[in-house]
Design a protein around this nucleic acid. Structure first.
Length: 424
RNA sequence: GUGGAUGUAGCUCAGUUGGUUAGAGCACCAGGUUGUGGCCCUGGGGGUCGGGGGUUCGAGUCCCCUCAUUCACCCCA
């Protein structure tokens, strides 16, 4: 018996009933898009061996360096609450021999919880949720374009039709190391003038230099050699083909050399869908080296992940709201001795698919009416003495304020017809 | 992780230069005669004033610490 009031841990949020409708709507849209694009659902564990993330996400990334929920379990194993979804999917792909079946393997996940020990702010939580896809075993640009198309379709169908895609290429093992050195050469004479963060980036992750927002660093970004110019022929051709396919499919995008992404495993295509204030709604790209890095055969792959909380926040700003859940009919009893009849009626109607509510507090008839109104019930069915004698119920339309006495046996059919015609 | 702001009922907030049993609106529950909601009226439940320590005869009100929320930065979904 503790006297302290328990609250949710920092950075986690309850999805309350008023908000759950928005989640269900977004999830339904995602499942529909993923089905149409041919992605099969996979559900992987929320925690994995720490080693998996060290090897996939990259030890020099912020995620691994300071954001992982890592602990030692009772067996002495180091495990980590997953900070992102791709590593676990790739692990499962290999563990279950999916690389031995028909390729490519197209997988998706919906509202999968992820964990990062970050400072919470609007649209950022320590437990957050992603929906995304992975295409494993496809090297052609069509796979990149399909993944980008799916991301765009998901966001557009959810209610943000004008969301635009930012596209870039980070090169591959052939051209990226050379570019990295060219970038270092460019920055080396100016180290003193850079912001402290960028001095660290210079050593640890030079590509991120291009991502800096400090005014003092802007001139060096502007004059830096661009990755696009440094791409090898194969990467260049790949990027060109992705663009051609997106254009052919009328998917709006723009090239953005500043898109670098925070995970080490990306090769060639990287992309984001960005919101003006919430940052990236969705991010993804190709990761041709990751499967091999995790012990599998060389396997090209590409995917994206979308932040559910951010998408819902963005939808809310646009006024896209899901209606609250309300009963279709409230069964009110007008006489004490008929409570069992009202209860039985509600249960029978529920069996037949009607969202029926019934009093649980022993309220007076008047109070039941008031409660039905506050719940937003479309109809109230009155079970009273005179109705009981006649084998009827009185169905009141709470919006119109009109009511009608109907045969009890045909009441469900009557309700269905009224709900279908005047409804919504 | 770095700075700033905020923290009184479920929600939005008031609370006078520190002074008796801490308030309002909304929300919730019940009534307003015997079977009808929305408006209105009456009544009721609900707060260790985020938590801890200190100053004081006395603290929601002042000081310190802590926790949480939020904004900017960093990073990202």
């Amino acid at each position: 018996m503790s006297a302290v009031r328990l609250t949710a841990p920092r950075g986690v949020a309850d999805v309350l009933p008023q908000a759950a409708g928005a989640w269900q709507r977004v999830e339904a849209v995602a499942r529909d898009v993923f089905r149409r694009y041919g992605f099969a659902e996979i559900r992987t564990p929320m925690f994995e061996a720490t080693e998996l993330f060290l090897r996939s996400v990259g030890e020099d990334t912020d995620i691994v360096a300071k954001e992982m929920y890592t602990f030692v379990d009772r067996g002495g194993r180091s495990v980590t609450l997953r900070p992102e979804g791709t590593a676990g999917v790739v692990r499962a792909y290999l563990e279950h021999g999916m690389n031995a079946g028909p390729q490519p393997v197209k997988l998706c996940y919906v509202s999968a919880p992820m964990f990062r020990y970050d400072r919470p702010e609007a649209g950022r939580y320590r437990q957050f949720h992603q929906m995304g896809v992975e295409v494993l075993g496809a090297a052609a640009p069509a796979a990149d374009a399909e993944v980008i198309a799916a991301a765009h379709a998901l966001i557009a169908s959810a209610g943000l039709p004008d969301a635009s895609v930012r596209l870039n290429s980070v090169g591959d093992a052939t051209c990226r190391p050379a570019y990295r050195e060219r970038l270092r050469d460019h920055y080396r004479p100016h180290l003193e003038a850079l912001c402290p963060d960028c001095r660290v980036r210079f050593d640890r992750n030079p590509l991120r230099l291009l991502d800096c927002k400090q005014p003092q660093c802007a001139p060096f970004i502007a004059s830096a050699p661009t990755l696009a110019d440094a791409l090898c022929d194969a990467c260049r051709a790949h990027l060109d083909e992705v663009q051609a396919l997106l254009t052919a499919a009328r998917i709006p995008f723009e090239l953005d050399p500043g898109i670098v992404r925070g995970l080490d495993y990306y090769t060639r295509t990287v992309f984001e869908v960005v919101h003006p204030t919430l940052g990236a709604l969705c991010g993804g790209g190709r990761y041709d080296g990751l499967v091999e890095e995790l012990g599998g055969p060389p396997t090209p792959a590409v995917g994206f992940a979308l932040g559910v909380e951010r998408l819902i926040l963005a939808l809310g700003e646009r006024g896209v709201e899901a209606p609250a859940q309300a009963p279709e009919v409230f069964v009110a009893c007008a006489a004490e001795e008929l409570r069992a009849d009202a209860f039985r009626t509600a249960m029978a109607w529920r069996e037949q698919g009607v969202a029926a509510e019934v009093d649980l507090l022993g309220r007076s008839f008047r109070a039941q009416m008031r409660h039905a109104d506050r719940l937003g019930a479309r109809f109230v069915a009155v079970v009273g003495r005179s109705e009981a004698e006649r084998g009827t119920v009185t169905v009141r339309d709470m919006g119109a304020g009109t009511q009608e006495e109907v045969e009890a046996a045909g009441a469900v059919a009557y309700l269905r017809q009224r709900l279908a015609s005047a409804g919504a």
